[in-house]
Design a protein around this nucleic acid. Sequence first.
RNA 1: GCCCCCGUCGUCUAGCCUGGCCAAGGACACCGCCCUUUCACGGCGGCGACACGAGUUCAAAUCUCGUCGGGGGUACCA
Length: 495
Amino acid sequence: MGKDTERTKMNESQKTDEQVRVRMAPSPTGFLHVGGARTALFNWLFARQHNGTFILRIDDTDAARSTDASMQEIFDALKWLGINWDEKYVQSERRNIYDRYVSQLLDSGHAYYCYCTQEELEEIRTESRKAKSTRSYDGRCRELSSDMVERYVSEGRKPTVRIKIPDRQIRVDDMILGSRNIDPLTLEDEVIVRSNGMPNYNLTSIVDDAEMQITHVIRGTEHLNNTPKQIVIATALGFNLPLFAHIPLVLDDTGRKLSKRHHGDLVAVNRYREQGYLPEAMLNFVARLGWSYDDKQEIFSVDELVEKFDLARVGKSGSVFDIKKLEWLNSHYINQLDVSARTDAVIPFWQQEGLLDATEERDWLERIVDAVGERLTTFQDIIPQTRYFFTDDYEYEPKAVKKWWGSSDEKKQSAREILTNLQQILTDIPTFDLETVESAVWKYTDENDIKRVAAMQAMRIALTGTSFGPSLFDIVVLLGKDEVLKRIDKALANL
RNA sequence: GCCCCCGUCGUCUAGCCUGGCCAAGGACACCGCCCUUUCACGGCGGCGACACGAGUUCAAAUCUCGUCGGGGGUACCA
């Protein structure tokens, strides 16, 4: 065993020093999800770090479930993340390659035709389960007589092709999980070609890894059990093995694997783009799921990730997808952007909401964004934060009204008084700039012994309908004198 | 059922390989205080974990075994 470990290590450094070739192999059966994005990122980082090649391979041998639309969606998501590929392959276009290797396996006796029907297989499975067997297929078609074959063929049965699991231990080396030996009794003669002639994942995957000269297979641990099967096929075909690195799964908050089927949009990368997340934040977030650099750094630029990422520092246990942390990172990256860039990012959201009518001046928009300041967690937040700048069609939030305008007649009267006075003051001031407005309002509150917060909040609700948001004086100036007076009128009528 | 993997604060993790520096550090979240025209931001503080049990050892989060717990796979899906 000591010898083997040594050899593995040698192998490893050799390959790292040589040309690194890695691949991401999504199946186009839906959108790219967070876990897939992480697999892509880890592969991509590893390739870039070693000046290697990152290959995108579309594993679409399941014609029934694969769609062009989802293939496109995966491309879009990867492009948005900035994960660019150097080579691209589509498995459904490579049938002849797989067929050639299947013939080779058949000819060399490493594989055989199986004529069992679905019903028969189901029966075998039930039986072996009852018998607590480690296998669910017994290999009964390994030695079919030519008579039987003839009979099956005449019945119109279309055979599958199965790989013969050899009778010896299979050694699996994994860069993250370590090495182990697999008892062949726990493996069974897997179907490698369907009865419709289309090869299966375990065949195409390892054949392509060899054909494409993949040096490191970095993929999720859901494939851990496939690895010995693929090693068997590779060995039968005389391939050199790539190095395997199985990264732990991304989990939901109940500890289950994130999947398109169970989690839907929550895990769709493209959905995060639409909601106003930054690719830098998504990348940073996903990189830290299972990987860490040290006990200090949380924020990593893409360049830093390329430099610092290390498979040896990827943990063995699964990580829960915590959107709160993603949000924190996103607001961090948004705040790194200058006002102009933030404005660019936010305009599509205003447009989508129908708030822009092309009369707004860029400068005014930028001032709004500036006033909003660090209050954005996602760009989508710009809508509730700034809606009232574009329309006076907003509701007065009941909770805010109750607190700052008051529920009793007495309190309402006092709020009405304040708003009326404020309106008068704002009408009278000579210029409508920040300093003038601010000092006039404070002069009024301080001289009349009115709490600043009470006056400000009463006016804020009048102008925005809510009790939170940017500095009130910014809002007042941005809205302009006419609009402010008009809105106070409206508030007075509603109070 | 069977096979495989995993197990440090609620979450992401540092520490584990090379036992003592760990009465376990950081970050997110949460709570409180400060700042403050609101909400955020920021500053300060708080809460909070080595799954359990044996063993080895002068010494165990770190090594060994067992138990328990969680997850993945078990298809003519990938």
